[in-house]
Computed example of a mutant assay.
Amino acid sequence: MAATDDLIEIQQLLARYAVTITKGDIDGLIGVFTPDGTYSAFGDTYTLDVFPELVGAAPKGLFLTGTPLIELDGDTGTGTQPLCFVEHSSHDMRIGYYSDTYLRTEQGWRLRTRAMTFIRRSGIHDSGIPHAFDRPAV
């Protein structure tokens, strides 16, 4: 079983992700990832260098995340975290979950990869429609 300190540190890292993206703090958002970190959604995987454009093109709103389920193996780990995104102007919601990998670095635990899975009204779980909104090309 993972050490409590590691679990708390990762939970705080994931809280930092939700708060920084909600506030539009791109530097803070990038800081939760390893330098080679990636984010996957809408049929594409993005590296950190395109995060400012990617986040700029995305809808704005509140990122509500649930307690993650985390499994650690030494200095690496995997996890799943529920998400409810509420768009700021209409209060429309998107629900789903993140599938993550973590790495312990000299700066502490960081996200190595984060992949979004949406839960549709039909009950289908998918990563989204490619090119669902204007965003930078991969």
Rank of each mutant, 00 (worst) to 15 (best):
T4C: 05
D5P: 07
E9Y: 02
Q11W: 07
Q11R: 15
Q11L: 07
Q12M: 12
L13V: 12
L14D: 08
R16Q: 14
A18W: 09
V19I: 14
T20F: 10
T20K: 12
T22M: 07
K23D: 15
G31A: 14
V32Q: 07
V32G: 07
P35F: 07
G37I: 05
Y39E: 00
A41Q: 06
A41N: 01
G43M: 02
G43A: 04
G43Y: 04
Y46E: 04
D49S: 10
E53M: 12
L54H: 08
G56L: 02
G56V: 03
F63D: 15
F63G: 07
L64Q: 14
T65F: 13
P68I: 08
E71S: 01
L72E: 04
D73C: 05
D75K: 06
D75T: 08
Q81T: 14
L83M: 15
C84Y: 08
C84E: 13
F85T: 11
D92A: 11
M93A: 10
R94K: 09
S99M: 14
T101H: 06
T101L: 03
Y102I: 11
L103R: 15
L103V: 15
T105R: 05
T105V: 07
E106V: 12
G108E: 08
L111D: 06
R112K: 12
T113K: 14
T113H: 10
T113F: 07
R114F: 13
T117S: 09
F118C: 05
F118T: 07
I119E: 04
R120D: 08
S122D: 08
S122P: 02
I124D: 03
S127L: 00
G128P: 10
I129E: 12
H131V: 04
A132C: 02
A132Q: 05
D134E: 09
V138P: 15
V138A: 14
